[in-house]
């Protein structure tokens, strides 16, 4: 039993170096497999979808507006007679791109801030963390709305806002791991042989943060999709005629009673993607941090 515990702890420390057990664990968690499948499916569609879409997503065909799903229009048509199937497919690129870039930005800057703040400590850490707390003490959607309201809604601005808003959460997680790692003796051994801060941060500490960062990134990705879609829905995100799913749902509300499919397909796409990312994120946590660190 003592041995078993040890094995688990050790596997948790260096999951990337030994991928085999990770995959074995993956098979033990069917939900995770489903999650990865869904996410890869959407990535596939985002990459190759636009070339497969039967229509141009902006192609209007007013005589055919609000057609129910048929052989010609698999998901039906919207209020302008545009093909919903094509729009949902093209829209996947939008969601993944905007939420993905936002997440990448948050993870990158959050990681840097967390690393430096945690490693340096002292007043620098205190100031940075208090600032992060301030950002965290405003509801993200509200802050996003207020900022976009003043910056003006555009795809780039949405990315920037999403990235900015989630920096504090990533920074916090990274910082807490750094605080734990920097007192480990392998870091002290590095100081004793005169390694510079740069080497210690990026060669000694960073590799050990990667599992936490991967789990955190997947969670942030889920939150980003949430935020991007909500902003689109409120009309503060990506602007028409872009086939943003949130935006499509927002516009479709008017036609809800006449043509439920106008709303159903983009909403379903969001739901499916979110479920996929959720399963994936939960699975990543199980695989990479089997010790179960409670950083929610």
């Amino acid at each position: 039993m003592e041995d078993g515990k040890n094995m688990i702890r050790q596997a948790g420390v260096s999951p990337f170096s030994k991928l085999q057990p990770v995959f074995r664990r993956l098979l033990r968690y069917p939900m995770t497999l489903i999650g990865f499948a869904i996410v890869f499916f959407f990535i596939f569609i985002a990459v190759f979808g636009p070339t497969m879409a039967p229509y141009q997503y902006t192609e209007q065909n007013l005589p055919n507006k609000l057609q129910p799903p048929s052989e010609e229009y698999v998901f039906g048509t919207d209020q302008f007679g545009r093909d919903i199937f094509s729009r949902v497919i093209v829209g996947s690129r939008d969601v993944l791109m905007v939420a993905g870039s936002g997440t990448a930005m948050a993870v990158f800057f959050g990681m840097l801030l967390g690393l430096i703040s945690g490693y340096r400590g002292g007043w620098f850490d205190e100031v940075i963390m208090r600032l992060m707390d301030v950002i965290l003490s405003i509801p993200p959607l509200l802050l996003a709305m207020v900022i976009l309201f003043s910056l003006g809604p555009s795809r780039l601005n949405v990315i920037i806002v999403v990235g900015f808003l989630y920096i504090p959460m990533v920074a916090r997680v990274v910082r807490s791991v750094v605080l734990d790692l920097k007192t480990r003796q392998f870091v002290e051994a590095a100081r004793l042989r005169g390694e510079g801060s740069f080497y210690i941060l990026f060669r000694e500490i960073l590799p050990n943060i990667m599992p936490h960062l991967a789990v955190e990134a997947s969670m942030r990705f889920s939150y980003s999709i949430f935020l991007v879609a909500s902003l689109g829905f409120l009309g503060l995100g990506v602007q028409p005629p872009s086939p943003d799913w949130g935006l499509m749902v927002g516009e479709a509300r008017t036609w809800f009673y006449q043509a439920r499919w106008v709303l159903f397909f983009p909403a379903g796409a969001i739901a499916l993607l979110v479920v996929g990312v959720g399963f994936m994120s939960d699975g990543l946590r199980r695989m990479l941090l089997p010790g179960g660190v409670s950083n929610e």
Binding site: A267, I270, G278
Partner: peptide, 25 residues
């Protein structure tokens, strides 16, 4: 556990307008 955790993670990320509109439907 896998079901509850996976679904709850999905719920956390599910925008309210999606769940709301589906509930309405």
């Amino acid at each position: 556990d896998q079901l509850i955790s996976g679904v709850s993670m999905a719920f956390v990320g599910l925008p309210e307008f999606v769940s709301g509109l589906l509930l309405i439907a």
